[in-house]
Amino acid sequence: MNDQLDKLKIALQITDNEHDDLLQLYLDDATDFLKLRLSVHDLPDEMQAIVRGAAVKKFNRFKNEGMASYSQDGESITFSSNDFDEWSNEIEQWKNDHNNVNQGMWVNPYEV
């Protein structure tokens, strides 16, 4: 079993292997979507917690997928349309830190 799956199962308090395939699918999908948002081929280690968080959200919506809201017996639940909204600040900070805009470069004026 991989480390991400183990950590996800701890977060969800799952002790058996019944949902391992589904959980792994949610981890893989969250990884792919986050790689697209970051425009990277390999997901940075510091983004693994966001992947797990998105997988937790997805699992908690299991069988309620596709619904924007749910109401029963006076209880109402609204689902976010984007699994990564909660971490938008962290994602933007990572992108800003890794876009090479704020990195200086020495230029020899005699070689230009």
Rank of each mutant, 00 (worst) to 15 (best):
Q4N: 13
L5T: 06
K7P: 00
I10T: 06
D16V: 02
E18Y: 13
D20R: 08
Q24M: 13
Y26A: 13
D32M: 01
R37S: 14
R37N: 15
V40S: 08
V40M: 09
D42Q: 11
P44Y: 11
D45F: 01
M47Q: 14
A49E: 14
V51F: 05
V51C: 04
R52Y: 02
R52I: 13
A54Q: 06
A55Y: 11
V56M: 09
V56I: 01
K58V: 06
K58L: 06
N60I: 04
F62V: 03
K63S: 01
K63G: 06
K63R: 13
N64Q: 07
N64V: 00
E65T: 00
E65A: 12
A68I: 02
Q72H: 11
G74L: 04
E75M: 08
E75P: 00
S76F: 06
F79C: 13
S81L: 06
F84G: 01
E90F: 02
I91Q: 05
I91P: 01
E92H: 08
W94Q: 05
K95R: 10
N100S: 11
N100V: 05
N102M: 08
M105T: 14
W106A: 05
V107C: 07
V107W: 07
Y110C: 01
Y110V: 06
E111C: 02
V112C: 10
